[in-house]
Amino acid sequence: MTTTAPPTLAIPGQLLGPASRYQPGPGTHLHDANLYASLLGHVHVAQPQQSQQQQQQQQRRAPGPAKRLTKITPAPAPTPPAELPTISVSVAAAGGGAGAGAVVVGDGGPVAGERKQKKKREVLPEVGNVVLCRVVRITPRQAVVAILVCGDSVLEAEWQGLIRVQDVRATEKDRVRIYESFRPGDVVRAEVISLGDQANYYLSTTRNELGVVLAVSEAGNTMQPVSWKEFRDPETGAMELRKVAQPQPQ
């Protein structure tokens, strides 16, 4: 194999390199032992995190002015014997010109660190993602929500999710009442626990930092959290029950 550097920009179907040199990342696909782009965008090559030595070797082995370190995506847990760099294509020009310094370590969450660009590619909620959603309607058994934000990316489409009564909190599960936890209109931070059925993702708010983050009182005022289960209306002073998300240290 000739050691040519991968292109900086890719068009779907463009050859990125042999599969023996890279691992396929997002926005790429494998065909005939070669890696091809499947998206229109910028090519990123991420070296494996462990084994710095090997990484340096590889850098020396594959010289190319076009190659820029802009993003590190960790390799999947059972790493293959040979530590190959991951090649990916993303729609955004992550980091832009000053990209070399901005190394973002992804934590499994979808596309981190592309906040600036005008248009984003739609992402799908995946199991383990923390999402922000709005409560659409409640029933005694579950709260139906519309997922609006997944990780750091704002979703174009509204994906429907369900928070079932047993997934609201970790303790005293049998005493949970949906109407004491959520109201329609609340903004809830939750975790995706299952892809669910044909229409709904299943969400959970059992962890402390998950739950209602924004709520409007019956009088129409934005309320403040006062305890793990109560919000207060600053104008009327009325208290309302919710499954409150523990404020995260900023």
Binding site: L132, L214, Q224, Q250
Partner: peptide, 16 residues
């Protein structure tokens, strides 16, 4: 004066 959570602008726009 409420200690509201801080959100980046696009998230804020989408949520409320």
């Amino acid at each position: 004066t409420a200690p509201t959570i801080k959100l980046p602008a696009p998230l804020f726009a989408r949520l409320s």
